[in-house]
Simulated scan of single mutants.
Amino acid sequence: MENDKINQIETILYNEDLNEATKQVASIEDSEMLYVLAANYNWDNGFSIPRAIIANDNCDMSTGLMIFYLSDGIRLLEDKDSFEQSKLDEWIEFVKGIFSILKANDFKKSSISYYPELTKVQLFKLKKSNPSIPEFFLNGIEGKDIEIPVI
């Protein structure tokens, strides 16, 4: 990835003005930049930036799936009842929202790959407890691998 794109991502990640940062995310036209931004996001900073990434028309299935797993969405797949009993309402809403978008296949397609890091035991349990889940949730999305610089 070019240095100017990395610098733009770094500016977003370290911008203290959340409104300005979300505006910058909305202006990104490169799906690879959104992917790298999502991969480097510090989840301690809340859901504003991930929501802006998802809302961007250039956000693709791979980035959406990565955000689902980075936001600990696997807990929804593992045990929906326990997930819904959490007191973290904003997190529950976020995970359910991105799950719905992914399941409806509402993100654009791209050539970027993403494979969730699931063990064979996790895969077995998830398939057993979610027999109708689309395969990409478990097996990922094929495409070209993007080198993710640490920002």
Rank of each mutant, 00 (worst) to 15 (best):
N42K: 07
N40M: 07
D81M: 13
F124R: 10
W91V: 08
G143Q: 09
P131N: 04
Y115R: 05
E147L: 13
I141F: 03
E135I: 09
I53P: 05
L65K: 07
Y69N: 01
I49P: 03
I74N: 08
S31D: 07
S111R: 11
D4I: 12
A26P: 05
N105V: 12
W43H: 11
T63S: 10
W43G: 11
K120S: 11
D81I: 15
Y115T: 12
A26C: 07
F99N: 12
A39K: 04
E78P: 06
L76C: 07
L123K: 12
G140C: 05
C59H: 13
I133A: 07
K144I: 14
Y41K: 01
I141H: 04
Q85G: 10
S71I: 04
K120A: 09
V36F: 00
P116Y: 04
G73S: 00
R51M: 11
A26D: 11
S111E: 12
F136P: 10
V150W: 00
P50D: 06
K87R: 07
I74P: 02
S110V: 06
L123I: 13
E93K: 12
G46K: 03
S113D: 03
F136Q: 02
I146L: 07
D72Y: 15
L70V: 06
I112R: 06
K109N: 15
E84I: 14
K103A: 14
A26M: 09
A39H: 01
E78A: 15
N42E: 08
V121N: 11
A52V: 07
F47T: 09
E20C: 14
K5Q: 12
F68S: 01
I67H: 02
I151C: 10
L118N: 01
M1F: 13
D106A: 09
R51P: 06
D145W: 02
M66L: 09
I67S: 02
K144T: 14
E29A: 15
A21D: 01
E32I: 14
D57G: 15
T22W: 02
A39T: 03
L70F: 08
Y41G: 00
G64H: 11
P50G: 08
E90W: 11
P116F: 05
K127R: 13
I54D: 09
E90K: 14
Q8R: 14
I9Y: 04
G46C: 05
A21M: 01
K144E: 12
I49R: 01
F136V: 10
L37E: 00
I148P: 01
D4F: 10
A38L: 05
T11Y: 04
A104V: 10
S62K: 01
D106C: 08
I6P: 02
Y41A: 04
I9W: 04
D17V: 11
F94W: 08
E117D: 10
I49D: 00
Q8V: 03
L76P: 06
N19L: 12
I28R: 04
W91N: 00
